[in-house]
């Protein structure tokens, strides 16, 4: 092989190997840093590991928002139409948080099995439904619980 070509080939090989290593490392650290989304049904089924940060979401159940007497602690339930799970949050809820609204929260299940939120997200737009929540509703819907779902909404 022509020496110049040989040099070029080794440079290319070097780059390919380097990029693969970089991407591999990126992917590895990425897999350690993702937050999985769980539907209320999955949470009620006990699929959530204790102590791990996950994302949970659903529609805020009407009449389920309860405030503590002092401080900012608040408990509310979210539902996918099939299961309802309570979430505790100590902080300021976003402006678009309201009953019946789709929300997504960053939560962690504590030792007592209660979901404690570190962040609650409700979106800009009232007609907008977080895709995860929509998906959770659809899943619950297809579990053949239409009757329950429709009775509630």
């Amino acid at each position: 092989m022509h020496p110049k070509r040989k040099q070029r080939l080794s440079l290319i090989l070097f780059m390919v190997v380097g990029v693969s290593i970089a991407v591999g490392l990126l992917m590895y650290s990425l897999s350690q840093n993702i937050n999985l989304f769980y539907t209320p049904t999955q949470i009620a089924d006990g699929e959530v590991p204790i102590g791990q940060t996950i994302r949970a979401g659903g529609l805020v159940v009407a009449g389920s928002v309860e405030r503590e007497e002092h401080g900012l602690g608040v408990t509310f339930k979210v539902t996918d139409g099939f299961a309802e799970v309570p979430i505790y949050f100590d902080g300021i809820l976003p402006d678009l948080f309201r009953e019946g609204q789709g929300i997504v929260a960053l939560v962690r299940m504590n030792e007592a099995g209660l979901l404690v939120a570190s962040e609650v997200l409700a979106k800009h737009d009232e007609v907008y439904m977080p895709p995860e929540v929509q998906d959770a509703l659809d899943q619950a819907h297809s579990r053949g619980k239409e009757a329950l779902y429709e009775a509630r909404y």
């Binding site: 650290s29 990425l30 840093n33 993702i34 937050n35 999985l36 989304f37 940060t53 994302r55 960053l106 895709p131 995860e132 998906d135």
Partner: peptide, 9 residues
């Protein structure tokens, strides 16, 4: 599954 990548990463 539905995941999100947090600011930490």
């Amino acid at each position: 599954g539905k995941i999100s990548v947090g600011p930490a990463w």
